[in-house]
Computed example of a mutant assay.
Amino acid sequence: MAPTQAPAPPAPPRRTALLLRLLVGAQVLYVLGVAGAGYATTALGKAVALAAMPADLTTLKTTDFVRLRYAAATVPLAQWRGPAAPRARQSVYVLLAPTGGPAEAAVVGVFAEEPATAPGQAVLRGWVTDVFPRTLGLRYGLERYYVPAASPLRQDRAPRPLRVLVRIAPWGQARIVAVEEIVGK
């Protein structure tokens, strides 16, 4: 008697192959969309300079990222412009105005709703982290920065003041473009 072979597994249905192709196509479109939004933010966004300090340079020994602590991350509670008192984890719009020259932008007000801007002003989206009796703690989603290998930040022993150049797109997305040391401070 001849040995019997197990039947070959059935070929995958066309529907499964089509679904797999659609899934891969959707992932490719998503990645291209994220990259395109980043490039569009850099090209079309309004340039704003923010003052910052590296939170801890010792992390650069084990990772390529540094946390930035912005001067605009703590603002007086008197700058709050909302119908009700601010609360933690609340989305806010921070109105920034240039201080003149290449200096950093200053916070004009913190709003619950997107404010109208005058020429030269920009709106940076963020959220409230802490509400203190006299100040608000804010985050912008720009606190983590990749430090390239050739950056002078890698050679610094002590934190020095930084100027963080940010581009803010008309649709609200923000992106760090460059980080420079402030000379003379």
Rank of each mutant, 00 (worst) to 15 (best):
E143D: 00
Q79L: 14
L68E: 00
V147Q: 05
Y93V: 08
L96V: 06
K61I: 00
A103G: 15
Y39C: 09
V147P: 04
R125F: 04
A35N: 09
G101F: 02
P54Y: 01
G82N: 06
V107I: 03
A40P: 05
G36E: 04
W80M: 05
T74G: 11
A88Q: 13
P115D: 08
P98V: 07
L50I: 00
E104D: 15
G82L: 02
F65V: 14
G101E: 06
T117A: 15
L95Q: 15
A149C: 00
D64W: 11
A88P: 04
V75I: 02
G126F: 06
K61W: 09
E113M: 06
L124R: 07
A47K: 13
A52Y: 06
A118K: 14
R67T: 13
K61Q: 15
G109E: 02
L136G: 02
W80H: 02
P83F: 01
S151H: 07
S151C: 07
A149D: 13
A116D: 15
L44M: 10
V110Y: 08
S151F: 05
Y39H: 12
A103Q: 14
M53C: 00
T42Q: 14
V107L: 03
V147H: 03
Y39T: 15
V75K: 03
G141C: 01
T129Q: 02
A118M: 10
T74P: 00
G36D: 07
E143S: 05
R69A: 13
A122T: 10
R81D: 12
A122R: 00
T42N: 01
R89F: 10
D56F: 04
L136I: 01
A55V: 10
P86V: 05
Y39G: 08
A72H: 06
F65Q: 14
P54N: 03
G101P: 06
A85L: 12
A105Q: 10
R125G: 14
G82F: 08
A84R: 14
A149I: 11
G120M: 02
A71F: 09
A78W: 09
T135Q: 15
L68D: 07
A49H: 14
Q90C: 04
P115Y: 08
A149T: 13
L142S: 03
A43E: 13
A37M: 14
G137Q: 02
R87S: 15
R67A: 13
T129R: 10
A35G: 08
A112D: 11
L50C: 02
Y145P: 05
A43D: 11
A88S: 10
L68V: 04
G100Q: 08
P83Q: 12
E143W: 07
G82M: 01
E113W: 03
E143K: 02
V34W: 13
A97E: 11
T62K: 14
A52P: 03
E104M: 11
Y145M: 00
P115E: 01
K46I: 08
R87V: 15
V75M: 01
A47V: 12
P98C: 01
G109S: 08
G109R: 05
G82Y: 00
P115M: 01
A112I: 07
P115W: 08
F111C: 07
A72D: 10
Q121F: 06
V34T: 14
T59K: 11
T135S: 15
A73N: 03
V34K: 09
Q79H: 10
M53P: 00
K61T: 12
A55D: 11
P102T: 12
A73L: 03
G101Q: 07
G141D: 02
A84H: 12
A78M: 11
T129H: 05
A85R: 12
G38E: 14
G38D: 12
